[in-house]
Simulated scan of single mutants.
Amino acid sequence: MTNAVKYLDDMKVGDRAAFGSYPVTREEVLDFAAKYDPQAFHLDDAAAAKTHFGRLSASGWHTCAMTMRMMVEGLTVGGQASLGSPGIDQIRWLKPVYPGDTLRVETVITEIRPSRSKPDIGTVHSDITVFNQSDAPVMTMKSIGLLKRRPAEA
C-alpha cells in the first residue's frame, strides 16, 4: 500500500512526527569538516582534547546537514508536496555531536499559513529537535517549509 502525498491542507498545528536514525561516523565528521568547517576541534584529536569539547566533535553545520537528510527521508515517505524552504528562523546547538553518536529527529507543527498571493501554496512552521542516542537534545531549530496546496482535482 502506498502512502498518499501530504499537502499543506493535510496538516494541522500540533501534528508531530518522529523519525531518523543517523549514525555519526568519524570519517564523515572529518570529511565534512575538511570541506566546510576546517576548525581544529573538528579535524584533530589532540587539538579537540584541549577544548571544551574534550574530543573530536562534528560541526554544527554537519549536524544540520545530517538533520536535513533525516527530514527528507522521514517526511517524504509516500511523497510530500514540498517546494523547499524560505529559511530557518533559529538554530541552537545544545550539545556536541561526536563520532559514535546516533541522531534522530522530532518535529511539531506550530503554524500553517496559506499564501494570500499564491493560493496554490503555503508555509508550515515547525519546531525541530534533534536527539542523540541518550535522548539528550543536541540541536533545535525553527523551520519554515513551503508546500503545495491540494489540487482541486485531487
Rank of each mutant, 00 (worst) to 15 (best):
R104L: 00
V108N: 04
L83I: 09
T102E: 12
R104T: 10
P86Y: 12
K50A: 08
Q80N: 14
L83T: 09
L94A: 06
Q90D: 13
R92E: 13
S85F: 11
A65S: 15
T110Y: 08
G84L: 12
V72D: 07
S85T: 15
E111Q: 15
I91H: 07
I109P: 01
Q80M: 15
R55C: 00
R55D: 00
R55M: 01
G100M: 11
T67A: 10
H52I: 15
M70G: 02
H62E: 05
A47K: 09
V77W: 08
P99N: 10
M66D: 01
S85H: 11
Y98L: 11
M70P: 01
Q80A: 15
G84Y: 12
F53K: 10
V105L: 03
A65F: 07
G74E: 06
V108Q: 14
T76R: 08
T76D: 00
V108T: 15
R69P: 00
M70Y: 08
V97M: 05
M68S: 14
M71N: 05
M70I: 10
Q80R: 15
E111T: 14
S82F: 12
L75R: 12
P86K: 14
T102H: 09
L103R: 01
G60V: 05
K50H: 03
G100R: 12
T51M: 03
K50M: 09
T110M: 06
H52W: 14
R69S: 03
T51F: 03
R69Y: 02
V72I: 15
M66P: 00
T76G: 02
H52Q: 13
G78S: 10
G74F: 08
R92D: 14
